[in-house]
Amino acid sequence: MKIARFIAAFLFATSLLAQEVKVPDAEQFVGRPEGQPVSGAMLDQKTNETAGMLRCPVCQGMSVADSPSEMAVNMKHQVRELIARGYTQDQILRYFERSYGQFVLLKPKFQGVNTLVWILPILALIVGIIAIFSMMGKRAGGQPVDDAPPAEGAEGSDDPYLAEVRKLTGKQS
């Protein structure tokens, strides 16, 4: 009798379990929360900050924090829920990156081809600064730039054209 009751209870429990709705959870992919649960104003602030780092996948260059689309709203709700549970910003970004790839990160990571995005502007700035200082140095050194007009009355010039002019006009150098 006891065994029959136990089996009935077990079957009832398993039937309840079978009915349970289960959605994919962050814990399955990025482990347990590594931070402390957050609530109140801090939760709003952290949600906006993290959602602002995620790209809305159905919009053109908008963050999850700024987009009014239903997809972005759902993502923002999930960010909020994860922060409330104690997930860190790094864990949350990793969770979304696992599904959407680096596309979902508004700030590209410093790796692969993305490295050029970080390096090229700095390189361009350095080349620009060198070019400006190089030009300034030339001017300060009194050397005329290639296409500048020659100084008036340059007596010591060895320009054959000027020598010919002086010869014709009777002026000796």
Partner: peptide, 29 residues
């Protein structure tokens, strides 16, 4: 295509789910 996203899930275990079925209300996972 600006909306195209290469899935990083290829080759990885599919995220598990069990959701309510339309019409019957049964949970299917």
């Amino acid at each position: 295509d600006p909306q195209h996203i290469d899935s990083p899930l290829i080759g990885k275990p599919a995220p598990d789910f069990a959701l309510k079925q339309v019409g019957t209300g049964d949970t299917v996972g």
